[in-house]
Design a protein around this nucleic acid. Sequence first.
DNA 1: GCTATATTTCGATAATACTGGAAATATCGG
DNA 2: CCGATATTTCCAGTATTATCGAAATATAGC
Lengths: 118, 118
Amino acid sequence: MTPKDAVEALYALAHEHRLGVYRMLVEAGPEGLNAGTIAQRLELAPSSLTFHLQHLQRAELITQQRQSRQLIYAADFSVMNDLVSYLTDNCCAGSAACAAPCEPARAKKPARKSSRAA
Amino acid sequence: MTPKDAVEALYALAHEHRLGVYRMLVEAGPEGLNAGTIAQRLELAPSSLTFHLQHLQRAELITQQRQSRQLIYAADFSVMNDLVSYLTDNCCAGSAACAAPCEPARAKKPARKSSRAA
DNA sequence: GCTATATTTCGATAATACTGGAAATATCGG
DNA sequence: CCGATATTTCCAGTATTATCGAAATATAGC
């Protein structure tokens, strides 16, 4: 992941609504959510939501898939993984806590199993 | 770390120059760098650099310390650690690669030991 | 083909960010 | 106190972002 990619991913997440969308999609799981549902939950005008979804898509943080009349969005973890790796590799040198993130105690959530291997 | 804090940290890092500053400070280690050196290396006008440094400081990603006539900036890893934890905890549910970051293979860098426990 | 639904694209507007020059502030060495 | 250095604050100008209504596009069912 280049610094440019990292900036793009960081920027895509660096907004209340976009981070909200992403978190919502993470929680929704592989099935994702259609645009209307997201807009309704976040109380966003449809066109505003599109604006933010395009940011997330451009950073490849989410995927889009048409299902009949609806467009389904879902979180794509690969860029998030790369981003976290980028941050730990490039931005944590010298920090013991960051250089060794393998503490079992850090697992606050059960991290429910997904059928497909990511 | 609240979503608001996460957005602030993400935003602070979501700019070519600010990410550059932060990475430079990470590399510089605990001794940090003075503003002039950073401005010179990044070819930034002093006032522009200040603008970006203030962003990073507001997010508590860096610290400031006066040393005679110079202001020394250094990376503060605590917020970075919180941010990485936030991302792995809140934005990676369902992803095996992300939910279980304890793979030895992920350690691309030797992760040099720091004497102080963070 | 027509109507209804879901979403995007377009266009306009308001807000915010980024930049850098000039002046102000802080420190040092005489 | 004065001149020199380091950095910030102030103040514009310019560019980018965020928002939303209205129109356009895509799909479905009749």
